[in-house]
């Protein structure tokens, strides 16, 4: 995820202090990993350098100086362009799981066990996500669903692989 574009987008609603930006980001997108303030600072300097934001004012006080940032027209155009560019679908062509399954088959281990264990682990994550989804607001739900659907996709692959283990065993043995 492009943090720079996200922060730019947050600035579109109005100028903010760096700390405000961090808080807004954490609240909306940083469910798992809150942003380091240092990361905000470095990102904002890069955006300043590129002319996508400008300093709207500085509040002097105790501690660090507090700059208020505002988005520039170039910044708005940049956000537009970012939103309009489709993300490249990720292809998980070389997954660890696949490697584990093939390795298990090669070494005469029980690949079905590996798959079952993995499924159990996936389901554990899915349960946690589902639980959070039930307790959270709409934003929570959407984010959890995104993760759930990805996990589900993994699981579907697991089921399919489990159903094709015999064929895979033959192919690997050759």
């Amino acid at each position: 995820m492009s943090i720079g574009h996200t922060l730019l987008g947050l600035l579109e609603s109005g100028p903010r202090h760096g700390y405000d930006l961090k808080r807004a980001f954490d609240e909306k997108f940083g469910h798992d990993r809150p942003l380091h303030y240092g990361q905000v600072y470095s990102t904002m300097s890069r955006l300043l350098k590129n002319g996508l934001v400008e300093v709207d004012g500085i509040e002097a006080g105790d501690g660090p100086e507090r700059k208020r940032y505002a988005i520039t027209d170039a910044g708005i155009t940049d956000v537009d362009r970012w939103l309009a560019t489709p993300e490249k679908p990720e292809e998980y062509l070389q997954s660890t799981l696949y490697t584990k399954v093939v390795l298990a088959l090669l070494t005469q281990r029980d690949a079905a066990d590996i798959l079952d264990t993995q499924r159990s682990e996936h389901l554990r994550s899915m349960r946690i996500l589902t639980d959070r989804k039930r307790k959270g607001d709409l934003a929570d739900q959407l984010i959890c669903d995104h993760a759930l659907f990805h996990l589900e996709a993994d699981l579907r692959w697991l089921e399919l692989t489990a159903a094709r283990l015999d064929k895979l065993r033959e192919a690997v043995a050759r």
Binding site: H122, L123, L148, F149, E152, R156
Partner: peptide
């Protein structure tokens, strides 16, 4: 057979 439905459970049993 749907994982997302199974995720509403406390635990699962696999039948094969």
């Amino acid at each position: 057979h749907e994982a997302r439905v199974a995720a509403y459970s406390d635990r699962e049993i696999v039948v094969r």
